[in-house]
Simulated scan of single mutants.
Amino acid sequence: MKQQYFFLKHGIWHFAGLQISDRVRPLHWLSFYFLVFAFLLSPIAAGAADITQQLHRPLSNSSWRQSRDQADSLLHVGEQQYASGYSDKTIESCLQALNIYRSVGDIKAQGLTYDLLANAYIQQGQFKEGEDALRRRLAIARDTKDFQAQIFALNNIASLLLQAGEPVPAGKTIEEALAIAHNVENIEGEGLSLSNLGLVTARLGDYNKAIKLYETALTFRRQTGDSFGEANTLNNLGDAYLAARNYQDTIGSYGAAMRIAKINSDRTNQLRAIDGLVTAHTAVGRYERAFELLAQRLTLANQSQNLREELKSFESYARLYEQLGNYPSARNFYERAIILARTLEDNKQEVRLIDRLTQMLKR
């Protein structure tokens, strides 16, 4: 399995929280993006030695293989559940897989499982549990001297610090990751860390410096042929230009990200780029283009059968129609979004959408 990593995006867009990551790819796989909640997180350290103590008695070779295959199957199911937006189910699958990996003494697989588990917890808004999973991942990486995993884990922890409103500690954590990447000549890690350092810098309001960091990050990501990372950094660059109200370069950056993501069937970055383009085109009055992009967004969500992304598409339609004063159409899309929230049993989303619809109807 390839190392997974993500990085929550900084909050300069229309959504209310940081979104997953630098890249969200399956664990056999691995890009993001990406988006602005505020929670205080308590560091919870956990060493690989603690995990080792939980190992069961040695199993026979046949039992070991059977158990290992069962854990691998659970992890694969968890990946599919996460890709479909069912992070609660992902958590259940990961915890079951972890118990088996512990019993057979597979430390490496535990580390990879913690990656996915952290993503799932964070998507569920369980940030303390997400941080715990990340710190366990980091502990395993340090004990096994897995420098690449350390780089990614440190970046992920920094994402939570940034989301909790602590950009300075987040920046220091990323700088630690960048130093490791530089020392071991890990170009991929340097690209990731520089891109995420740009996120921190943008959060601090220095968009010009952030833009320079993103441009430097792009050179590393292109050296490794990291198309997922390149698309994510281009989206980050678009975010910075958008915050600086440089709409021409905003559209150029998001457009490049969308093209690369489309070629690589990278729906996460493609959807994120579309969201940015919709915002930029709307800002300059290009409403027809904004609606064309929303149609593409909804098609992508339908193709991947991702109900959460369908919900986001409906809400984006509703907001745009509301902005244009077309309240009947806005109401229609809000109601469709509410139905999906109920289908997903997402009470918070349902209440939020109902409230927004109610406020609109009072006008």
Rank of each mutant, 00 (worst) to 15 (best):
residue 183 N to F: 07
residue 213 L to A: 02
residue 181 A to M: 12
residue 192 L to Y: 15
residue 192 L to I: 14
residue 191 G to S: 15
residue 202 A to D: 05
residue 198 G to Y: 05
residue 205 G to E: 12
residue 215 E to D: 03
residue 190 E to P: 05
residue 189 G to T: 14
residue 204 L to S: 12
residue 183 N to L: 06
residue 217 A to Q: 00
residue 195 S to R: 09
residue 188 E to H: 12
residue 187 I to Q: 13
residue 195 S to F: 05
residue 203 R to M: 12
residue 211 I to A: 09
residue 182 H to V: 05
residue 208 N to M: 06
residue 192 L to K: 07
residue 181 A to W: 11
residue 209 K to S: 13
residue 189 G to L: 08
residue 216 T to W: 00
residue 217 A to F: 00
residue 194 L to K: 09
residue 217 A to L: 00
residue 207 Y to S: 05
residue 195 S to K: 08
residue 185 E to D: 06
residue 204 L to N: 14
residue 194 L to A: 03
residue 217 A to D: 00
residue 198 G to I: 03
residue 198 G to Q: 05
residue 192 L to M: 08
residue 194 L to H: 03
residue 211 I to S: 11
residue 199 L to Q: 10
residue 214 Y to E: 02
residue 207 Y to H: 14
residue 190 E to S: 10
residue 191 G to N: 13
residue 207 Y to F: 14
residue 201 T to I: 15
residue 209 K to W: 01
residue 210 A to D: 01
residue 214 Y to V: 01
residue 212 K to S: 08
residue 206 D to K: 11
residue 190 E to H: 03
residue 188 E to W: 07
residue 193 S to C: 10
residue 214 Y to N: 07
residue 202 A to N: 08
residue 185 E to T: 07
residue 197 L to S: 06
residue 201 T to H: 07
residue 191 G to V: 05
residue 191 G to H: 03
residue 183 N to C: 05
residue 180 I to H: 12
residue 217 A to I: 01
residue 185 E to A: 06
residue 210 A to M: 01
residue 187 I to D: 06
residue 188 E to C: 04
residue 208 N to V: 12
residue 206 D to W: 15
residue 186 N to L: 12
residue 209 K to A: 13
